[in-house]
Design a protein around this nucleic acid. Structure first.
Length: 854
RNA sequence: GCCCGCUUGAUGGAAUUGGUAGACAUACAGGACUUAAAAUCCUGGGCCUCCGGGCGUGCCGGUUCAAGUCCGGCAGCGGGCACCA
């Protein structure tokens, strides 16, 4: 039994594609464009299965769209700045640049073995000054436009990585990379004013109809828009006011205390003269948020002794507390407490003996009986105990209060966002330098444009704590043209800055004068299909949406939404194994013994089969793509990646699965080899078929074209694979041998090979050549659907009696209702099930189903 | 706590607008070929059955001639956010 010689074939076709420069892309206004992009990798040097799944999906889309006649842009680059390079520098004494570029080379080679249609002419690495010089210039443009600013702020400090983290990088109070508990520090930082676009970023989510609902919801929650009112309370004995934000101004008459955050300016001021308050505030602020998850249940407060005056009723006394549950980072850092209608306020009021005054009466409640127990009432109802608001609904009362607040100058309607500005400074060497100079007199000036880029120094000492740039003996000292002296900003950008615009750079990757050439950008952007992990649902995707708006505001581009279509693929998972001592074992180190129990191959000791988890080095459950490609070929790996599991779900890696894919590759190859004899000439198409079996195969061919096309368009790769296998099975089962049959088989095989092309491109080329074509499959058009052949001659119609299937009838398609009913009532199983009774009603859905109701 | 998603054979999963549940695979069982094994090919199967049929898409209820699909409630699993005023 001969086998498909995949090793020779794959390297031969990869060489052919490369020699003919098949994947080099150019603008062509006469063709519709299609920009497909996978989230670019961090060049760790290791290509893992998650990458492979991601890039294979993108490649299928690229090849499919190309066959459909699109001018496809499918580039690749490297998210090359970041901590691992610096860590490697410290541990292995290798320069981050050297380490990074060596990894890039390594990963490029590994990617190439998958047979991807990447246009390497457009390759970019974000650590290249030719890339980041544009980023520095854009930063200065944004600074001029007020989209960048510097402010001292509390930051999340990662004590292990010795750097600042963005809020998005803090997970459960721990650094996203180091896992260390985050501390708070007050540092001057550069911020991107993402909040300037808060409303727009939220509104525009509506239009992203080719994004997963889930991602849009996550961004919506992250931006977190709340409508309410800002109210200024008079403080007895002081001239200043206490400003609060509330979404429930309708409950203003239910207020019974005020609370401010421990780090509120007023609290800080009072703490100077109040030792107890200072200790209390310090306790509240200590530590990360993770420990607080436990003590969260407890609401704690400190009475400042101050009192606020209720804006509409001077009889209501409002003592001011510093409270641990009020956050400085949201609203104004101060609230009025309305215990009856807010759970936190209720718990606080019960503890500190503040009155609980219901002001919203639930619709079905008895006004004389209603009282608040352990649970605040947060629903709608009729306003009571509230002076001029009595009798109004909640929304009605909101407007009425705001109107009165504005009339009396006490408050205003206000919308606040949970979203905060993006702190982008990092105290690290291996990042893009922030092009700023701090002069001796304390002023801060941009690096003069003609001096850009500010490049990183090569001679750096990585042994020491904090930022190596800061310790460099000479790099940071500068003298301006006018003689003023200063030091460079030694912070570098968060690496999310680079990834916020790389997709735009791919349009004109070598442009010297601008980040993106206008013409190229307007031709290629937006990205039509972006594919990557859902872990970037908020961070990278939100920053990129901001960056396009900021680049538009600074005149670099004219685009709001970078990604018209987004797809988030699932992870690649694998079974885990542990030995008796609890050590993780690699899949290659274990095997089932004769009784089917898993044992370690080395010493035959029993092994526990653990959970199926994401492939990771620490669990040792990874499979190296290189091993798979060497053993089975790239096409097998590609096919397996796309089979069975829907792409948005996790894919469990199994040996049985890869074997199954490998078997199909060989089977498809044999199918073509076995049919070559006597086959009609290339391109032949069967017409006017008489035999039923011929017509059936012809119909199957066109159904396959229709359904596979639809499947690829919706990225339903698993269904496409199943459909292609069905077509293979149909061709295998077809037994016709006439001259006409040889034409039909020729047509069927050519369609099969073209449908397979995006998934298994090397096999595709091999079979296309075997079918006597001297063109490349990569240059061949997608098969054309002829809807005329989709029509069935006869249709099978199921017949139900009282909703239960009792038989089926076969009739010409389009038979009229009366004929269908007659045939259905005469069907043997139907007659038996009716047992002599008369049908009360017969429902006929032509060509589909009949239901006889007794 | 709040928000979102998911739940279909032994397993991964199919099933446009409600219209023959289980496509396509994987695993398994039986057979063919072989000295033998691998590979390959063929056959089988949701479960139960007195062979008429009965029951089946997490559970309970509803709408409908007809529900995996729609509605209400519940449970389990997964994910996101989390003292957001």
């Amino acid at each position: 039994m001969s086998r498909y010689p995949f090793r020779a074939a794959e390297s031969r076709w990869q060489r052919t594609w490369q020699e003919r420069r098949c994947f080099a892309t150019e603008m062509n206004p006469d063709k519709p464009k299609y920009y497909v992009l996978e989230m670019f990798p961090y060049p760790s040097g290791r290509l893992h299965m998650g990458h492979v799944r991601n890039y294979v999906m993108g490649d299928v889309v690229a090849r499919f769209r190309r066959a459909q006649g699109y001018n496809v842009l499918h580039p690749m680059g490297w998210d090359a700045f970041g901590l691992p390079a610096e860590n490697a520098a410290m541990q292995q004494r290798v320069h981050p640049a050297k380490w990074t570029y060596e990894n890039i080379k390594e990963m490029r080679d590994k990617l190439d073995m998958m047979g991807l249609t990447l246009d390497w002419d457009r390759e970019i690495a974000t650590c290249d000054p030719d890339y980041y010089k544009h980023e520095q210039a854009m930063f200065l443009d944004m600074l001029e436009k007020g989209l960048v600013y510097r402010k001292k702020s509390w930051v999340n400090w990662d004590p292990v990585d010795q750097t600042v983290l963005a809020n998005e990088q803090v997970i459960d109070g721990r650094g996203w990379r180091s896992g260390a508990e985050v501390e708070r520090r007050l540092l001057p930082q550069w911020f991107f004013r993402i909040t300037a676009f808060a409303d727009e970023l939220l509104e525009a989510l509506q239009g992203l109809d080719r994004w997963p609902e889930k991602v849009r919801t996550m961004q919506q929650n992250w931006i977190g828009r709340s409508e309410g009112a800002r109210i200024r309370f008079e403080i007895e004995g002081r001239s200043d006011r206490l400003e609060v934000f509330t979404t429930r101004p309708d409950t203003l008459f239910g207020a019974s205390f005020m609370a401010i955050a421990p780090d509120h300016p007023l609290a800080a001021e009072l703490a100077k003269g109040d030792e107890g308050l200072r200790i209390f505030a310090a306790e509240c602020l200590r530590g990360g948020t993770s420990e607080e998850a436990i003590e969260r249940a407890e609401k704690r407060g400190y009475d400042t002794g101050l009192h606020c005056r209720h804006p509409f009723n001077s009889d209501i006394e409002l003592p001011v507390y510093v409270a641990n549950f009020v956050l400085m980072g949201y609203g104004t850092g101060a609230i009025f407490g309305c215990p009856a209608h807010d759970q936190r306020d209720l718990e606080f009021a019960r503890k500190y003996g503040r009155p609980v005054i219901p002001v919203v009466l639930p619709p079905d409640a008895d006004p004389t009986q209603f009282a608040i127990g352990d649970e605040a009432y947060i629903g709608d109802g009729r306003i009571v105990n509230s002076d001029f608001l009595d009798g109004l609904s909640v929304p009605g009362a909101k407007s009425a209060v705001i109107e009165r607040l504005e009339a009396t100058g006490v408050g205003t309607a206000e919308t606040v966002f949970r979203l905060r500005d993006w702190g982008a400074s990092r105290q690290r060497y291996w990042g893009c330098p922030i092009p700023i100079i701090h002069l001796e007199d304390g002023t801060i000036v941009p690096v003069p444009r003609e001096q850009l880029p500010v490049t990183l120094p090569d001679d750096v000492d990585f042994n020491g704590s904090g930022n190596p740039l800061d310790r460099h003996p000479t790099w940071k000292y500068v003298t301006l043209a006018d003689g003023r002296k200063g030091v460079r900003e030694t912070d570098t950008f968060d690496t999310f800055v680079e990834s916020s615009w790389y997709f735009a750079r791919f349009c004109s990757p070598r442009d010297e004068t601008s980040p993106v050439a206008r013409e190229a950008a307007s031709y290629w952007l937006p990205v039509d299909q972006y594919i990557g992990g859902v872990e970037h649902a908020v961070l990278h995707l939100l920053y990129s949406r901001f960056f396009m708006r900021a680049m538009t505001a600074t005149g670099h581009i004219d685009l709001a939404e970078p990604f018209a279509g987004l797809f988030t693929q699932g992870m690649v998972t694998h079974q885990t194994f542990r030995d008796e001592d609890g050590n993780w074992l690699e899949p290659g180190e274990v095997a089932p013994d004769n009784e089917g129990n898993w044992v370690a191959m080395a010493d035959r000791r029993p092994v526990t089969v653990g959970r199926i988890e994401k492939m990771s080095k620490s669990k040792r459950n990874t499979v190296d793509p290189k091993d798979i490609v060497e053993a089975y070929g790239a096409d097998t790996a590609r096919l397996f990646m796309l089979s069975d599991s829907p792409p948005e779900r996790d894919l469990e890696w199994t040996d049985a699965g890869i074997d199954g894919a490998f078997r199909y590759i060989n089977r498809a190859w044999r199918l073509v080899q076995n049919r070559l004899d006597g086959l009609a000439e290339p391109g032949a198409v069967a017409t006017s078929l008489e035999l039923a079996e011929d017509r059936q195969l012809k119909r199957r061919i066109h159904q396959s074209i229709r359904d596979v096309t639809d499947g690829f368009e919706r990225l339903h790769f698993n269904k496409c694979v199943a459909l292609i296998r069905e077509l293979s099975n149909a061709i295998e089962d077809y037994e016709g041998a006439s001259a006409q049959a040889q034409v039909l088989v020729r047509e069927a095989l050519e369609v099969l090979v073209r449908l397979l092309g995006p998934v298994t491109p090397h096999l595709g080329e091999e079979l296309w050549q075997a079918l006597d074509h001297n063109t490349l499959l990569i240059d061949t058009a997608w098969p054309k659907l002829d809807p005329a052949w989709l029509e069935e001659d006869n249709v099978t119609i199921a017949v139900q009696v009282n909703g239960k299937r009792r038989g089926e009838i076969s009739l010409p398609k389009g038979a009229d209702k009366a004929d269908i009913e007659t045939a259905a009532l005469a069907e043997e199983g139907v007659v038996r099930a009716m047992a002599g009774k008369t049908a009360r009603r017969v429902i006929v859905v032509p060509d589909k189903i009949v239901n006889v109701v007794l």
